[in-house]
Protein backbone atom coordinates (compact mmCIF):
# COMPACT_ATOMS: atom_id res chain seq x y z
CA UNK A 1 0.00 0.00 0.00
CA UNK A 2 1.35 3.36 -0.96
CA UNK A 3 2.41 5.65 1.83
CA UNK A 4 0.51 8.42 0.13
CA UNK A 5 -2.71 6.83 1.28
CA UNK A 6 -1.66 7.36 4.86
CA UNK A 7 -1.06 10.96 4.12
CA UNK A 8 -4.46 11.26 2.52
CA UNK A 9 -6.02 9.62 5.54
CA UNK A 10 -4.23 11.99 7.86
CA UNK A 11 -5.46 14.91 5.77
CA UNK A 12 -9.01 13.62 6.08
CA UNK A 13 -8.64 13.16 9.81
CA UNK A 14 -7.21 16.67 10.18
CA UNK A 15 -10.14 18.09 8.27
CA UNK A 16 -12.68 16.13 10.30
CA UNK A 17 -11.01 17.35 13.45
CA UNK A 18 -11.09 20.98 12.44
CA UNK A 19 -14.66 20.73 11.26
CA UNK A 20 -15.56 19.21 14.61
CA UNK A 21 -14.04 22.19 16.36
CA UNK A 22 -15.98 24.54 14.19
CA UNK A 23 -19.33 22.80 14.34
CA UNK A 24 -19.75 21.06 17.66
CA UNK A 25 -21.07 22.99 20.59
CA UNK A 26 -20.08 20.56 23.27
CA UNK A 27 -16.72 21.57 24.64
CA UNK A 28 -15.62 18.00 25.09
CA UNK A 29 -16.38 17.08 21.51
CA UNK A 30 -14.74 20.22 20.21
CA UNK A 31 -11.76 19.28 22.26
CA UNK A 32 -11.83 15.79 20.80
CA UNK A 33 -11.72 17.42 17.40
CA UNK A 34 -8.46 19.05 18.41
CA UNK A 35 -7.13 15.71 19.58
CA UNK A 36 -8.09 14.24 16.25
CA UNK A 37 -6.12 16.94 14.52
CA UNK A 38 -3.10 16.22 16.69
CA UNK A 39 -3.33 12.58 15.89
CA UNK A 40 -3.64 13.30 12.22
CA UNK A 41 -0.36 15.14 12.55
CA UNK A 42 1.04 12.14 14.36
CA UNK A 43 0.03 9.89 11.54
CA UNK A 44 1.75 12.18 9.11
CA UNK A 45 4.87 12.18 11.18
CA UNK A 46 4.98 8.44 11.43
CA UNK A 47 4.35 8.08 7.73
CA UNK A 48 7.11 10.45 6.84
CA UNK A 49 9.36 8.70 9.33
CA UNK A 50 8.72 5.56 7.40
CA UNK A 51 9.26 7.37 4.13
CA UNK A 52 12.57 8.81 5.19
CA UNK A 53 13.54 5.61 6.88
CA UNK A 54 14.48 7.17 10.20
CA UNK A 55 12.98 7.12 13.64
CA UNK A 56 12.57 10.82 14.25
CA UNK A 57 9.00 10.79 13.06
CA UNK A 58 7.97 8.12 15.48
CA UNK A 59 9.87 9.68 18.34
CA UNK A 60 8.14 12.96 17.72
CA UNK A 61 4.82 11.22 17.68
CA UNK A 62 5.53 9.86 21.14
CA UNK A 63 6.37 13.31 22.38
CA UNK A 64 3.17 14.59 20.93
CA UNK A 65 1.14 11.95 22.66
CA UNK A 66 2.58 12.96 26.01
CA UNK A 67 1.90 16.59 25.29
CA UNK A 68 -1.61 15.75 24.17
CA UNK A 69 -2.17 13.89 27.38
CA UNK A 70 -1.05 16.88 29.39
CA UNK A 71 -3.32 19.03 27.31
CA UNK A 72 -6.22 16.75 28.06
CA UNK A 73 -5.58 17.11 31.76
CA UNK A 74 -5.61 20.84 31.61
CA UNK A 75 -8.47 20.97 29.14
CA UNK A 76 -10.71 18.71 31.11
CA UNK A 77 -9.97 20.63 34.29
CA UNK A 78 -11.06 23.82 32.63
CA UNK A 79 -14.12 22.31 31.04
CA UNK A 80 -15.17 20.64 34.25
CA UNK A 81 -14.87 23.77 36.27
CA UNK A 82 -16.89 25.65 33.70
CA UNK A 83 -19.46 22.88 33.63
CA UNK A 84 -19.78 23.06 37.39
CA UNK A 85 -20.26 26.79 37.29
CA UNK A 86 -22.70 26.96 34.44
CA UNK A 87 -24.19 23.50 34.39
CA UNK A 88 -23.46 23.34 30.69
CA UNK A 89 -20.58 22.26 28.57
CA UNK A 90 -21.74 24.17 25.52
CA UNK A 91 -19.06 26.46 24.31
CA UNK A 92 -21.64 28.76 22.79
CA UNK A 93 -22.91 29.57 26.25
CA UNK A 94 -19.59 31.09 27.09
CA UNK A 95 -19.86 34.34 25.22
CA UNK A 96 -19.84 37.01 27.85
CA UNK A 97 -16.56 38.30 26.47
CA UNK A 98 -17.09 39.84 23.10
CA UNK A 99 -16.67 42.78 20.72
Amino acid sequence: MSLVNYLVLSGILFSIGSIAVLTRRNAIIAFMGVELMLNAANLTLVTFGRLHGDLHGQVIAFFVMVVAAAEVVIGLAIIVSIFRTRGSASIDDANLLKS
Partner: peptide
Amino acid sequence: LRRLQNGFVRSYAAVML
Protein backbone atom coordinates in the same frame (compact mmCIF):
# COMPACT_ATOMS: atom_id res chain seq x y z
CA LEU B 1 -15.22 45.01 12.69
CA ARG B 2 -16.41 44.67 16.26
CA ARG B 3 -19.23 42.50 15.11
CA LEU B 4 -16.76 39.88 14.00
CA GLN B 5 -15.62 39.57 17.58
CA ASN B 6 -18.92 38.02 18.60
CA GLY B 7 -17.78 36.09 21.63
CA PHE B 8 -18.35 32.64 20.11
CA VAL B 9 -15.22 30.62 20.28
CA ARG B 10 -16.30 28.58 17.28
CA SER B 11 -16.45 31.61 15.10
CA TYR B 12 -13.00 32.63 16.33
CA ALA B 13 -11.79 29.22 15.28
CA ALA B 14 -13.49 29.73 11.94
CA VAL B 15 -11.73 33.07 11.48
CA MET B 16 -8.46 31.38 12.22
CA LEU B 17 -9.15 28.56 9.82
